[in-house]
Design a binder for these strands. Structure first.
Lengths: 220, 220
DNA sequence: TCAATTTTGGATTACTCAGTCCAAAACCCA
DNA sequence: TGGGTTTTGGACTGAGTAATCCAAAATTGA
């Protein structure tokens, strides 16, 4: 019998099994934190890509042994996909954290677009792991494409809600189609990510973020 | 002595050497067209990326033998960089071909942004080789980053000229900063490329292209 | 036809990779 | 303490890689 330590770490399966006295003997527990190891792998994959990250690189970044990795995460492909899932989840969380209680939805949008002016050059150079994944493996790994489609739908829905909120506060004209505008903002966001990764100056990135918001406001 | 067949194919070195009777003997000429082989390699690299393209894949795509490839192009890395150069040159040429004699610079800009609505899904899924290169190797291959910076400067300058032309025809307000607007359009173009690669619908891509131009026109 | 030279592609090399195996260490409960 | 179980990491495996070697084929001018 094998155990999925992902669930174990969230406390579902293990608790019930222990309560039912399923285990006669408790064996040596894992010496590492699954989530920490995953985060380490995520960094390596983000920085080097899938093929670029060797198992050795991954083990060093995860600070665990070879067999521990295979036992815990399956194979390299499964580990990569789990990292990508994790990245999207964190990224999404970052977005929602910024929604907060800002009374100006347009300022929130600007905050999204201007994020590259607040990041270090090194962070900008790493780009977005989701975009890196699509441009490299979108054609060859169906899971990557599926994940991208899913994420795009969720992000655009969230952006559309922000734009509708901006229309309620009067910051944007009601005649603007919220769905189209959200697609526009999303494309701008992706474009800025690539421009930042390609080494565009902080000034240029700031200008484009400002210009995009100003353009939205000017639309009738 | 070795010969750079790139220049040979353009007829500079070989002619002078022949005229000077440098060769006592003419040996067997190459049986393949260098540019055709390069184009084949470009397709493979574009579709599969650098690591994803094995030498076998490349040879099949180039329709030449192993040793011919190494003799003619150096090694895999050199071949990739030459393909990337070639891609950027072709891409740039495509842009300038569309400048033509259209009396509306704004229509030309719209033509750029709407290119993804005219391409097949397969073409959109391949994305832009330049973006694919930056997102995958921008950090690890300095030549890739340098090439991207160079290309960005040239494309933005060209876009700025278009925007200034649109201001002359009265399509855009003079108060708009041409440099900022060109950076904005470039970011939109990159964003659309990624959105298209990620599987965005033709309708969404068309909407964003239209919206971007309308937003430009609305700016004061 | 022949000598000189180059192209060509199959065989080979040296290396890296992802993934498996296994024995020893670590840990728990009784 | 000691039996039972799991973790752990070094050694290993087999496949696949980029790049080199080399001998045969091809082509030229004389």
């Amino acid at each position: 019998m094998t155990f999925d330590y992902h669930y174990v770490s969230h406390g579902f399966i293990l608790d019930s099994l222990v309560q039912n006295n399923y285990f006669r003997f408790m064996a040596r527990p894992k010496e590492f934190d699954r989530d920490a190891a995953l985060a380490g792998a995520l960094q390596v994959f983000w920085a080097k890509g899938y093929e670029g990250a060797s198992t050795g690189d991954l083990l060093k970044g995860m600070k665990i042994g070879r067999q521990s990795m295979y036992d815990t995460f399956g194979d390299k492909q499964a580990l990569y996909l789990e990292c990508l899932h994790c990245y999207h989840k964190l990224d999404n969380k970052n977005f929602f954290d910024h929604l907060s209680d800002n009374p100006s939805p347009l300022e929130v949008l600007h905050g999204f677009l201007a994020i590259f002016t607040r990041r270090s050059e090194a962070e900008n150079a790493m780009g977005c792991m989701g975009i890196n994944a699509i441009t490299a493996y979108g054609q060859t790994k169906p899971e990557v494409k599926a994940l991208a489609l899913n994420t795009a739908a969720r992000v655009e829905a969230m952006l559309a809600r922000l734009i509708e909120a901006a229309q309620k506060t009067g910051e944007l004209a009601n005649s603007v189609d919220a769905d189209v505008a959200s697609s526009f903002v999303y494309a701008a966001l992706q474009g800025l990510t690539v421009r930042a990764q390609a080494g565009a100056s902080r000034g240029e990135l700031a200008d484009v973020a400002d210009f995009t918001i100003k353009a939205l406001k000017a639309m009738r």
